[in-house]
């Protein structure tokens, strides 16, 4: 095992702990912290896969942006009449069976196709990805920016409109 392998399994442990916290915790804030550890672990794995730009985007956009949005959502909706809300679950048995079935199906039937695949790591991927984003994928990139602007304006309008 190389050093990259040790780091990879370390990030795996962090992510599994975060997933566990999200799946079983009774408090919204604990679930949000679990999501944070998942996102940071994913950024670490992206960096190990030599996708540095994706790792930085993951940290800035997900851990910095989406998670803060979700925290705002938690703080604005989390309590009802000064009583902290506890998360309830329903259909836990059915949900566990479906999720476990999905996981086992993926591992047993789809997973063996990737047993022979090993990652090579693409050198200098930051430069090539940036060039690709601004040459081959320029239209899609600009359209994604426009979509982001539209949805942020829409979010602000929806959140701020009050009925009279």
């Amino acid at each position: 095992m190389s050093a990259a392998d040790y780091f990879f399994y370390g990030w795996c442990l962090v992510m599994v702990a975060g997933l566990w916290a999200m799946a079983v915790s009774k408090k919204l804030i604990h679930a949000a912290l679990g999501l944070l550890s998942c996102l940071v672990a994913l950024a670490g794995i992206y960096a190990l896969l030599s996708a540095e730009l994706l790792a930085v985007i993951q940290l800035m956009v997900y851990a910095g942006g989406v998670l803060v949005l979700i925290l705002f959502g938690i703080m604005l909706t989390g309590r009802l009449s000064d009583k902290p809300m506890r998360i309830e679950s329903r259909n836990v048995a059915v949900g566990s069976v479906i999720a476990a079935g999905l996981f086992i199906t993926l591992i047993v039937f789809v997973g063996p196709a990737f047993l022979s695949v090993t990652s090579t790591g693409s050198p200098g991927s930051l430069r090539t990805l940036s060039l690709a984003l601004f040459s081959e994928y320029t239209l899609a990139f600009e359209l994604a920016g426009v979509l982001l602007l539209i949805s942020l304006i829409a979010g602000a309008v929806i959140a701020s409109s009050r009925q009279s």
């Binding site: 990259a4 599994v16 999200m22 999720a99």
Partner: peptide, 21 residues
């Protein structure tokens, strides 16, 4: 390098927990 099927297992776990939630 990191074995790709381990990453596949990890992403299957992420998907399953997401569906569970």
């Amino acid at each position: 390098m990191i074995a790709t099927h381990h990453i596949f297992i990890l992403s299957a776990l992420l998907l399953s927990v997401g569906v569970f939630m």
